[in-house]
């Protein structure tokens, strides 16, 4: 378990933990456009495996958005997946892009994390005029800011 103390000007006696294992971003068609591991804790996969994982998840998400165990007429699709080793949160934007955050099982405030990742994506990826939409993300600025957000002291 890793503990990070967030430096701030306010007096905080508690340590704030944020252990995110990995971030994946899928485009509208289900293709993987970004994958990054931040902390150890997940099994390392080959890049091909990640692509398959992304595609599979995209299909599963599609199915789950059409069926629902309750009588709701509209379903948002799979949002949270919990297991004993990790918790995964999926956020689908209104434009069809999916953000998958893998974190340690008792991680809280994952929706805040997801929102911040979306903001960083909107800033450093989308605002770069040379970035081709739906293509893999190769942005140094995005990487840098994402890393300093998720792992503030490394």
């Amino acid at each position: 378990m890793f503990l990070f103390r967030l430096r701030s000007s306010r007096v905080f006696s508690l340590a704030v933990t944020m252990v995110v294992y990995a971030v994946l971003i899928l485009n509208k068609a289900g293709g993987l456009i970004y994958q990054r591991d931040f902390n150890p804790g997940l099994q390392k996969l080959s890049s091909n495996d990640y692509l398959i994982l992304a595609g599979t998840f995209h299909g599963v998400h599609a199915i789950t958005s059409q069926i629902s165990p309750t009588n709701e007429t509209s379903s948002s699709g799979l949002e949270v997946l919990e297991s004993e080793n990790f918790v995964m949160r999926c956020f689908q934007t209104l434009t069809g892009t999916k953000f998958l955050i893998f974190a340690e099982p008792r991680q809280q405030n994952l929706d805040v994390v997801v929102r911040r990742v979306y903001e960083l994506y909107a800033d450093y990826v989308m605002k770069n005029p040379f970035y081709q939409i739906e293509m893999p993300i190769r942005s140094e600025g995005f990487d840098r800011h994402l890393t300093s957000y998720i792992k503030p002291h490394q």
């Binding site: 934007t93 209104l94 434009t95 892009t97 929102r115 979306y118 903001e119 994506y121 909107a122 800033d123 989308m126 605002k127 005029p129 939409i133």
Partner: peptide
Amino acid sequence: GLRLIEDFLAKSNMQ
């Protein structure tokens, strides 16, 4: 517009 929409959705938190 293609790019602005993401910024719009991210900042305005429209779900």
